[in-house]
Write a protein that binds this DNA or RNA. Sequence first.
DNA 1: CTGTTTTCACCTAGGTGTAAAGTT
DNA 2: AACTTTACACCTAGGTGAAAACAG
Lengths: 506, 506
Amino acid sequence: MALSSRAHAFSVEALVGRPSKRKLQDPREEFQPNFQEKEGGKEERRCCAAGKRSEQSAQKRPKAEPSATAFSGSVEERDAIQVELQGSELWKRFHDIGTEMIITKAGRRMFPSVRVKVKGLDPGKQYYVAIDVVPVDSKRYRYVYHSSQWMVAGNTDHRCIAPRLYVHPDSPCSGETWMRQIISFDRVKLTNNEMDDKGHIILQSMHKYKPRVHVMEQDGGGDLSQIQSLPAGGVKTFSFKETEFTTVTAYQNQQITKLKIDRNPFAKGFRDPGRNRGILDGLLETYPWRPSLTLDFKTFGADTQSGSSGSSPVTSSGGAPSPLNPLLSSPCSPPMFHLPSCLGMPCPEAYPHINLPLCYKICPTNFWQQQPLVLPVPERLSSINSSQSLTPLMLEIPILSSLGIHQFKKMVHLKTSVDSLYRHLILPVKMLYGLQAPGSIFQNSIAQKALACPFYPSCGFYRYNFATPSRPYAADHIKMNDQGQVSLRESKWNHAHWHPTINHCL
Amino acid sequence: MALSSRAHAFSVEALVGRPSKRKLQDPREEFQPNFQEKEGGKEERRCCAAGKRSEQSAQKRPKAEPSATAFSGSVEERDAIQVELQGSELWKRFHDIGTEMIITKAGRRMFPSVRVKVKGLDPGKQYYVAIDVVPVDSKRYRYVYHSSQWMVAGNTDHRCIAPRLYVHPDSPCSGETWMRQIISFDRVKLTNNEMDDKGHIILQSMHKYKPRVHVMEQDGGGDLSQIQSLPAGGVKTFSFKETEFTTVTAYQNQQITKLKIDRNPFAKGFRDPGRNRGILDGLLETYPWRPSLTLDFKTFGADTQSGSSGSSPVTSSGGAPSPLNPLLSSPCSPPMFHLPSCLGMPCPEAYPHINLPLCYKICPTNFWQQQPLVLPVPERLSSINSSQSLTPLMLEIPILSSLGIHQFKKMVHLKTSVDSLYRHLILPVKMLYGLQAPGSIFQNSIAQKALACPFYPSCGFYRYNFATPSRPYAADHIKMNDQGQVSLRESKWNHAHWHPTINHCL
DNA sequence: CTGTTTTCACCTAGGTGTAAAGTT
DNA sequence: AACTTTACACCTAGGTGAAAACAG
């Protein structure tokens, strides 16, 4: 694998799975009380804007979804909105190294992307869900290679920068529909082009940022004029510590590059064929390698971004609600509305009733509340994941069929590793989980609620919500790539089953 | 070019540009008073659900948009909604042959796709725009190869089939935003799988259908329950005669195959390198081939689907409003609402106040009105386009760089034609038009209205509306494919300019 | 014989990090 | 020296018609 010259201080192989020189504290201090959810086997992290959350210890086996909605102490909202970060395990792996996000003039997607599940909405009401990215502090950073650390390199005044809001394309949508699906912001793009007119989120390079998810109830007819007034239900804002990142125009930390290449399907061309990866990646970095056909594949999570379900080994700590920390206390121009932080909600962890300027200028009026941030510990925290030390098993079986020229060149020097073996080893296994909808936005925009006639489902709106198939798939209908992602050949009765749901809430 | 065996009755070259044996009438009878619009040089056809339309004769040069909105005689709506089919010229070319649309179990897109412009909406109100496909008659057809004709082969009862509605993913959206953009339904998929659960439009093969565009005003809060009651503004339904098509599982008429291959970018791999095509296609089929560097390129329209602007030769006749013809007079089950055809609208061409059952079952309630159809002439009409006869100029210059293996194989037998020359001939021309937004649905879902600060455009919603660039592009920033489509390399100040507009109407 | 399904090579469209070149 | 831009190979994802296989 070719590395940039300045990064050669770390050999690739030496970096594999090795914890970097990390910052300070034990992760326990960062990811508060563990909360491991096993919905579909996938551990996620919940965050709520208000109320307390019932804590739940990690459980080894898939289990019924924890009823972590004991929102006691609320004034009136028993249905306090909860937002649960999907893929938090991957986020944490990046966070432990020090997440970097490339920003380009044309706009670059985030990887990982922000994907959440929302709970506690009123099924019948209409909501907007949106994301923005706000500075974590007012510092400029530079990366020191010899110490693999980000150091403060100056100050920046973010006051005049009003963050751009990316409204989820499904908005507005009913609470029922929002809650039924994973809300993905994978199409969001970050840019360093201050003149950007493509709607991308504008950030400054070499700064630390943090995405925030907003949930807002539609108050009326949904037209612009009505939104000029304050929304009835207020805006709920959620953020997750592990989604913090530093903006770069080129990756600084080689470990980040490595992890991105390993996990982002679009970077597959840069993958080192000599190293383990794919659906067994998590396992291999958690347990010593033991080739066995008796492995319980349900414990393997496809923790690429594309896997929305599937199991994962219980290795990482759970998350905790991330309080809304004030940061941008300086006024934005022009301030138009002043809102309490947690409008109409009990919010013990946030800072209610602080008069703050609205920096979101939603033409022609402000709409989303600028949530201030307070970061008690500006430096990123990281932990040493002992499971990352591994000795890859090297095989002498080059699998050319799945390798491009790019990878073939590398194979001149490197040998194919266990991942090739995995492909053949796992292929006949019936993976009922780990599947995800192709999920084009288009497809997500039609929903249907009822089928009136068995043969002629009545005209309606369809939304694609992937669920477990109604019956098991035959093994020969399953294709699995070397990332552990599973796809299905469609056949007459054997195709993936989509749950009809409502959309657009007509 | 490889043709299916049964289609070899027509040699490919013989078929090129040759009019098929067509049905009956003069096209004048079908495409009523000519109406040629030159907005951006592109001829389009207008259709309105109500009111009269001012007719306008064809104009040779680009001109201000015809003020074809003389909606007199209306009861109260001076702003009667108009819907204008984009790409009608291409639709007509298919229609003249006898449009076929492939339907598959997995779902197949339409080509051409339905793209419309809407006018006469209230800029401040919220609208839904949707499409469905309804039978043109109750006949089953079969294609007779030796006569190149579609013949009636039986009857079909469509009564129990409630058409599925595809709601445009941008819905709901303000009238202002709808009117600012071309509304494209290119992601709609047709299927013959009656059990489809992916929201695709279910059709029966070997039947004639017709897409319809619906515009509906959002009446209230936008939630489902409110839509159970009748929409305040009613549903306006529009259809276009030239978008009729016959469903097939494999193309029957070789001319259709040819035209699809020629115009659908995704079928580029099947194009015959020995024949003219691309942006000069229309010209070549209109005028005899005369190689000249003095050609006025503004007269060449990129009439692929992807070209939303650009000029086109004035060769085809304009269109006229297509009345809402009753067809499905049989009741659908279960009927839930009875609505007049043109709710709240004067509709001289339609059939107002006929009590009809609602066959669109939008969970949990019906919503869109089932528009009955009446087809006085069930047989497709076509015209002989004399301009289609041409003798392609064969050159001996194989351009391998742009040809794949597929095409290279063909070149063993065929010779590269003028289209290769065109590529080099036209490249330096500064095409300011003919550009289209990449138009991912995602991008279309964010809109912004105002920029507060020149360097920090305030947080807002962006929608991508392509417009002419703020300054001309340097020629070396332009890439043009052999279809005449133009793309731009992004550079610092030279990127395409997007007009911020409002979206989601907060 | 007629019509449908499946697989496939060939495309479009666009998301990756790389490496070299450019910029400050 | 630090950071940014650009062209590029290599991917993912999925839309084409062709052709063969399949179904009745």
